[in-house]
Design a protein around this nucleic acid. Sequence first.
DNA 1: CTGTTAGCGCGTTCAT
DNA 2: ATGAACGCGCTAACAG
Lengths: 361, 361
Amino acid sequence: MSVTLKDVAQAARVSVSTASRALTGTGLTSDRTQQRLVRIARELGYRPNPIARGLKTGQSRLVALLVHNLTNASFQVMAEVVQARLKALGYQMLLCIGGDDPQQESDTLTTLVDHRIDGLIVVPTGKNGAQLKTLAKDVPIVCLVRRDDATDLETVLADDPQGAYLGTRHLIELGHTRIGLIVGRQDTTSGRERLSGYVRALREAGIARDDTLIHAGHYVPETGASCCRKLLDLSRPPSAIFVANHEATLGVLRVTAERNIAIPDDLSLLCYEDMPWFEWHRPAISIVDNGARDLANLAVDRLLHRMDAKGNGSEGVREYRVGARLIKRDSCRQVDTPAPARSAKPKSSSSKSSAAKSAKA
Amino acid sequence: MSVTLKDVAQAARVSVSTASRALTGTGLTSDRTQQRLVRIARELGYRPNPIARGLKTGQSRLVALLVHNLTNASFQVMAEVVQARLKALGYQMLLCIGGDDPQQESDTLTTLVDHRIDGLIVVPTGKNGAQLKTLAKDVPIVCLVRRDDATDLETVLADDPQGAYLGTRHLIELGHTRIGLIVGRQDTTSGRERLSGYVRALREAGIARDDTLIHAGHYVPETGASCCRKLLDLSRPPSAIFVANHEATLGVLRVTAERNIAIPDDLSLLCYEDMPWFEWHRPAISIVDNGARDLANLAVDRLLHRMDAKGNGSEGVREYRVGARLIKRDSCRQVDTPAPARSAKPKSSSSKSSAAKSAKA
DNA sequence: CTGTTAGCGCGTTCAT
DNA sequence: ATGAACGCGCTAACAG
C-alpha cells in the first residue's frame, strides 16, 4: 500500500538502520549515502509512518487544542492560529470542544493522552485541576485564557483587569456615571478580573459602586438578555452598558432592539472581545479587544518552548499577560455631564440633557 | 509511566494474548477470566495504547474533518456536530483548516493519511481530485458541501438549487422584479447551483434575466462590498438583493450602512446560510438555511457506513441532498408593483397595495 | 479456551 | 560508517 523504510533500504541496497539514520538525519552516515537515500526516498514517495515512529519514540506529532466551543469568536481565531502555526512545524492540531463541561473536559483529556499527544493547549474549566496536574508530568501543557487555580501550569492570560479598566474609563470619560456591567461567572478568572477592572476605574473616578448595576452570569446569550432587562428596568437605569461577557452580547442586542432603544443615542454599548461583524454592524460596536491572535501565538510559543526543553519541570515565569486594547467605534456616545459632581459624592440630580448629538469621532 | 497490557497480564497471571482477547472482547475467552481481566485492568487503570494498536491494525481512531475556515458559521456547526458524533463513538476528530487553498489542501491530505486516519470528511477545493481519488482507495472519504467533479466520491450536498429558488421566489412574491444576486464563484458547485435556482425562479415568474444584476465572486466580504456598490450604482438599481455568497454578507451590510440605506425600507436583503447574530440583528435578517447541522450529521452517517462496510468500493447512491428552507425574518419587505408590466405571462395584476406594512409574520 | 510465536514500521542499541 | 538484532505495545496467526 504505502512504501516503507524497508522498501527504501532495499532499493538503496543498504540496511534499514542506515536508511533510518540517513533519513532522520542523525548525522551518523556518510554524506554520500545520506543524500542518495534522501533522493531514493523521494523518488519512491516514501512517507515515514508516524504511528510506527510514535510507538518507538513515544511521540505523535499531534498537539491538542481544547476549547469550550467554536461560537466564541476568540476561540475561532485561536484555533486558526494554532493550526497554522503547528502545521508549519509539522504538527497536526487536534481540536477538541469541551463545552465548558468538566466531565467532557476530563474525558477528552484522557483520550488525548491515550493518543500520546506531544503537547496541549487548554482553556480549562477549572474543575479538573488534579487531572491536569497529573497529565502535566507526561506532556507539556499550557493553559489559555483561564487559569486553573488548582495547578501551577504555565498560563497565558488576557489582561482582563486592564481591559475592563480601559473600557470602563472610556465610558466614564464620555461622561457616563451610571454604567451597567454584565460580566461572566465569578468563579472564572476572567469574570473576576473584569469586574475588578470595572471597579477600579469607578473608584479612580470617584464614582460610588452600585451593585444593582452589576450582573454576573453564565456564558450564554440568555444571560445578556435577562441582565439587560434588569438593568433597563431600574428606576434609575444606566446610560451605558459594558457587556464584558462575550457570549451575552447577543442577548443584550436583542433586548435593546425589542425595546426600541437606540444605540448610542439612548444607550451607550461597549462589548468585550471582537466579533467579525461588530465593525459592520450599525452602529459599529466599540469593543475591548482581548488580543485573541496574540494570545494564541504566545501560547504556541510557550508550548513549543516546553516541548523542546523536555523534562524540565518548573522554572521561571509561569504566567503571561497579553495586553488588551480599546477599539472605539460608534456604539458609545458622549453624554452631558450635568455638573462636575466630583467632590465627596453629592451627585447633582442629572435633571435632563437636551440633546447631545452623537459625537461620532 | 503508564500501565501496559503486559502489566495487566502479569497481574492476572495470564498471557498477554489472553489479556488482549479478554479486553477487546473478541469473545474467545471464558467469561470468568474475561470479567476478571476487565476488573484487574480497571483496578490498574489500564488504558490501551492507540498507537501500538494502530500499528498493528492500521487504524487510528482518528477521523479528519477538512474545512476552509472557521469563520463561516456553517463550518462551525459542522465541526461541532462532527466532533460530538465521533466522540460518542470513540473517535477523535482531527479538524483541519484548508483555507480553500488547493496547495494547503493537498499538503493536509497527505499529512492526514500519514497519520492513518480512519475516515475523512472534506469540503474539497475541487483542485485535488486526482489526489482524493487515490486516497479514497485507502480510506473512506465523504465530500461535504462541495463536489469534486474529478472524483466519484460519495458527496453530501446542500440543496442549493432549491434554496436559491425558494429565496428568489420569496422576493418575487413580495413584489420585487429587479433582484440583485451576489453569488459565489462559478467554478464551485454551490456557486453554479445557486445561480441556477435564482434563474429558474425568475423564469417561472416571467421576469427577464438581467445580467447586470448578477455578480459572482470569491468568498470574502470584499466581494460583497464591491458587488453591492455596483448594484446600487446601476441606473435602475434593484429593490432587493439576494446575497447567496455567505462570506460576502458582511461586505453588503457595510455598504448599505455606509450609504445609509435602510433595510428593508429602501432595500430588501436576503442572505444565504444563517449566522448566530442574524436573528438578533436589527432588522433580523431573513435567510435561506442550508441545514448545516443536517449536512454534518448525514456526512457522519455516510462516513460511518463506509467505515463499517470496509473494502466495499462503489455501490448505490453516491450523492445526497439536504433540503434548504426559507426563514423569514424582517429584512425583506413587500413592495408596490408599480404597474403590471407582465405582458408575456399575465399573472393576476395585483395593481398596488399602497402600503403593505412589513408583513412581519 | 489458552499460551506461544510472529510481526506491524521504525529507532536504537550493539557489534563490526 | 554500516549491518544485525532487539523492542516499543499490541493483535492475530498458529498450536496445544
